[in-house]
Design a binder for these strands. Structure first.
Length: 497
RNA sequence: GGCCCUAUCGUCUAACGGUUAGGACAGCAGAUUCUCAAUCUGUAAAUCCGGGUUCGAUUCCCGGUAGGGUCACCA
């Protein structure tokens, strides 16, 4: 079998859409599952859309997700350059287009964009494949116009009433009638090739074996099939993967929530969790299933690569369910041991976290972090929640709000309960690490009885005084870590009003 | 609107002609608990509709419907 070579060919628009990430992830897996190569090629033939730093961002995300290319603008390779605007300098696209003109499969079109617009408004152009009036200009007229310096594009000369087909590795056999296909522009008036021409030539030259892309590209496939035929290239294997849809319908888009891969990292999602979530969108692990038995859904990147086959891809588009992503994230956080989580967390603080610098420093410099992480790792859904869960260790809240429903039933007794709680903690051993939970619970229960409260009530007063919130990790463990001095300080400073 | 793709619980999916249509997320209920969670247990929930083919269709074929993609000198 031919070497498997897949590629990711994005245009440098500045950020990596999570939908692209979904696609790249599969493209990379296909190569790696077959001992092949994964190539990055930048499609920047539209100069208007180029964004500074876009390639760096692409690499940042690819590296973070373990999808580092084997060949690309950074790593080089035998088919360099890997940036289309640089490839263009050799004139390969223009030469190929002119060749097509010579063979009668393409033609010069001198329509200005205004003329084109006017033309397309006419009823006879409505719902019909575009055919330029210049399609059959005589050779001498073409030469004369070019000589006069008229601007032109080169268009594909789509034949009449022929069937073009692709045997897609995921979708199967799909065919079109050429009467429905536009005379696509191949070379723009600025001399740059369009995507359709460039992608066919580059994929051919770079020996790409599988064109894996999202399903939105399917309609452009017949134009490219025609090019393969006229350019006399072997057709690679096409595989159009399902799309990731927004819960509200339509493609995932910025308007309806975050789609920037980096932003997911900023929000505290783990790379492994995101990958696990993405791999299960449009693909299911081909594992043996026993009727009624729970199935495994947690897979490592490596397992995924080892199991991945194109034939297991789903044809149906999948909806991006943020809840399930959150579930994966929580699962990954809770499965790590505190030491592993510490490493992940510190990396996050350094590279992605957008939180107060002070808090970042506190957590980053804390060498007793694992014990604290142990308390919150089973309850946090994101790294951000991890930090939020432990931030009270570092800083007492000054503006505690006591007018909340958790304590309103005994609001008038608050300060007296607070005093008792303070006295009780004063009586405990100096070394908080020596405290015994039963003894501590007993003491707190006595305070409840004394004031005619429910057992949980004094705990709540203590919790709010210490944490500043009615929600906290397990209190007793937290207190042991915080230490007696700090506990007493916070209880003394609690302003019960 | 033209062309094309798709169709199993709300969502992600399993089933590759024969299952009480399975699992997971979300939901709901219960257990547990010093809070919020987490956890555990249970529960409800689907083969889009209509025709064929077949002893038998979620599965194959046709039609409808619905959803999606795409119709640039953008990729």
């Amino acid at each position: 079998m031919k070497n498997v070579r897949t590629r990711f060919a994005p245009s440098p628009t500045g950020f990596v859409h999570i939908g692209s990430m979904h696609n790249v992830f599969f493209a990379h897996a296909l190569a790696k599952a077959n001992d092949g190569d994964f190539i990055l090629r930048i499609e920047d033939t539209d100069r208007k859309r180029y964004v500074e730093g876009a390639v760096e961002e692409l690499y940042a995300m690819l590296d973070e997700f373990g999808l580092t290319p084997d060949e690309g603008p950074r790593e080089g390779g035998k088919y360099a350059p890997y940036i289309q605007s640089e490839r263009m300098k050799s004139g390969i696209y223009k030469t190929a287009a002119e060749e097509l003109v010579k063979k009668g499969n393409a033609y010069y079109c001198f329509l200005s964009s205004n003329e084109l617009e006017e033309l397309k408004k006419k009823p006879e152009y409505k719902n019909k494949a575009f055919r330029s009036p210049h399609r059959n200009l005589s050779k001498s007229e073409v030469e004369a116009r070019i000589l006069k310096g008229e601007k032109y594009v080169i268009r594909l000369k789509v034949p009449e009433n022929e069937i073009v087909a692709v045997d897609d590795a995921i979708l199967g056999h799909v065919e079109w009638n050429t009467d429905d296909i536009d005379d696509q522009v191949l070379i723009k008036s600025d001399g740059f090739p369009t995507y359709h021409l460039a992608v066919v030539i580059d994929d051919h030259v770079m020996n790409i074996s599988h064109i894996t892309r999202a399903y939105e590209w399917l309609p452009s496939t017949p134009k490219q099939m025609l090019l393969y035929k006229y350019l006399d290239y072997d057709v690679p294997i096409f595989a159009h993967g399902s799309l990731v849809l927004d819960p509200d319908g339509g493609k995932l888009s910025k308007r309806k929530g975050n789609v920037n891969t980096r932003q997911f990292l900023v929000e505290g999602y783990l790379v492994d969790a995101i990958k696990n979530f993405l791999m299960l969108l449009g693909w299911a692990a081909p594992i043996e299933r026993i009727h009624g038995e729970k199935e495994r859904e947690i897979f490592s990147h490596e397992e995924f690569i080892n199991m991945y086959k194109l034939e297991d891809r789903q044809k149906t588009n999948a909806v991006f369910d943020r809840n399930k992503l959150l579930w994966f994230n929580q699962k990954y956080i809770s499965t790590m041991n505190p030491e592993e989580l510490e490493i992940v967390l510190e990396n996050w603080l350094e590279k992605y976290a957008e939180i107060e610098n002070e808090l970042k420093d506190f957590v980053g410099r804390d060498n007793a972090l694992p014990a604290k992480l142990e308390l919150v790792k089973d309850r946090a859904k994101t790294l951000l929640e991890v930090v939020e869960g432990i931030q009270f260790f570092y800083k007492a809240r000054k503006d505690i709000n006591w007018k909340i429903k958790q304590v309103e039933k005994f609001a008038e007794k608050l300060s007296r309960i607070g005093e008792d709680v303070l006295e009780f903690h004063k009586s405990l051993d100096e070394n908080s690490k020596e405290w015994a939970q039963e003894e501590w619970v007993e003491g707190m229960k006595k305070i409840a009885e004394k004031h005619g409260l429910k057992t949980g009530d004094p705990f709540m007063v203590l919790r709010i005084a210490i944490v500043g919130s009615p929600f906290s990790p397990p209190l007793f463990e937290a207190l042991k870590i915080l230490g007696k001095d700090e506990i007493l300080r916070r209880l003394q400073n609690a302003n019960y009003s």
